[in-house]
Measured scan of single mutants.
Amino acid sequence: IDVRFTVNGLDVTVRVRTEEIAERVKELAKNGVDWREIQRIAEELNK
């Protein structure tokens, strides 16, 4: 599942395995978490 969001004007796409992880990623993006941090968290959750 590809999750797309915009952080500080940057369009970011993170690929995740499940809808649940996708929701977590969207939540982080909404809360203004840095995209590199979101990427790292997504990689952890995908394991």
Rank of each mutant, 00 (worst) to 15 (best):
F5S: 05
R40P: 01
D2N: 06
I41Q: 08
R4T: 15
I38Y: 00
D11A: 12
G9P: 00
L28K: 02
K30T: 13
N31Y: 05
R40H: 10
N46E: 05
K47Q: 14
R17G: 09
E19N: 11
L10M: 13
V3L: 13
D34I: 04
T18L: 02
R15M: 08
N46I: 02
R36D: 13
A29H: 12
E23G: 10
I41T: 07
E44W: 04
V16H: 00
D2I: 07
E44K: 08
E44Y: 06
G9F: 03
V25A: 02
D2L: 08
E20F: 06
E19C: 10
R17K: 15
V33A: 11
R40N: 10
E44L: 11
V16L: 03
R15L: 05
R24P: 00
R36V: 14
V25N: 00
I38C: 02
E43T: 10
I41E: 07
I21S: 04
T6F: 06
V33Y: 09
V25Q: 00
R4C: 11
R17A: 15
K26H: 10
I21T: 03
G32F: 07
L45F: 07
N31D: 14
E27T: 09
T6K: 12
V25C: 06
I1N: 02
F5A: 06
E19G: 10
D11P: 11
D11Y: 04
I38G: 00
A29R: 04
G9Y: 02
L28C: 05
N46V: 03
E37Y: 04
W35K: 04
E23T: 13
I1Y: 10
G32A: 09
V14W: 01
I1P: 02
D11T: 14
I21Q: 10
F5K: 02
V14L: 13
E27F: 04
A42P: 00
R36P: 15
V7F: 07
K47D: 14
R4F: 12
F5M: 14
G9K: 01
R24Y: 12
E19S: 12
T13Q: 08
I21K: 01
G9W: 01
R24N: 07
R4I: 15
N8R: 02
T13G: 05
R15N: 15
T18K: 02
T6C: 10
N31W: 06
V12D: 01
V25D: 00
E44A: 11
D11N: 11
A22V: 06
T6M: 13
K47L: 14
K47F: 13
K26Q: 10
K30H: 11
D2H: 07
T18P: 01
E20D: 13
D2T: 08
L45H: 05
V3H: 02
F5E: 04
I38D: 00
T6S: 10
V33C: 08
E19P: 13
I1L: 09
L28I: 06
N46Y: 02
I38A: 01
V33Q: 06
V33F: 11
Q39D: 05
E23H: 14
D11E: 15
V3S: 01
T18N: 12
I21A: 09
W35V: 14
I41A: 06
D11G: 07
R4Q: 14
V14E: 00
I41G: 01
I41M: 09
V14T: 03
I1W: 11
I38P: 00
V14S: 00
K26S: 09
L28Q: 03
N46R: 02
I1D: 01
V16K: 00
N46Q: 03
E23C: 09
E43G: 09
V3M: 06
K26C: 09
W35D: 03
K30A: 14
R40W: 09
G32Y: 05
A42G: 02
A22I: 02
R40V: 11
E27M: 08
N31V: 10
I38M: 03
L45T: 02
A42F: 04
V3I: 12
V12A: 05
N8C: 08
E20S: 11
I41S: 03
I41C: 06
N31I: 13
D34A: 07
E37G: 03
K30F: 10
V7C: 07
E44C: 14
I38S: 00
T18C: 04
R17P: 09
T13F: 04
R17T: 11
A22G: 10
R36T: 15
E37S: 05
N31K: 13
Q39T: 14
I38W: 01
R15I: 11
L45C: 04
E37C: 07
F5I: 15
D2Q: 05
N46H: 05
K47A: 15
V16I: 03
E19R: 08
L28V: 03
A29C: 07
R4A: 12
K26Y: 05
K26T: 11
T6D: 14
E43Q: 10
Q39E: 11
K30V: 11
F5D: 03
V33D: 04
Q39M: 15
V33L: 10
V14Y: 01
E19I: 14
E23I: 13
R24T: 14
K47C: 11
V12W: 06
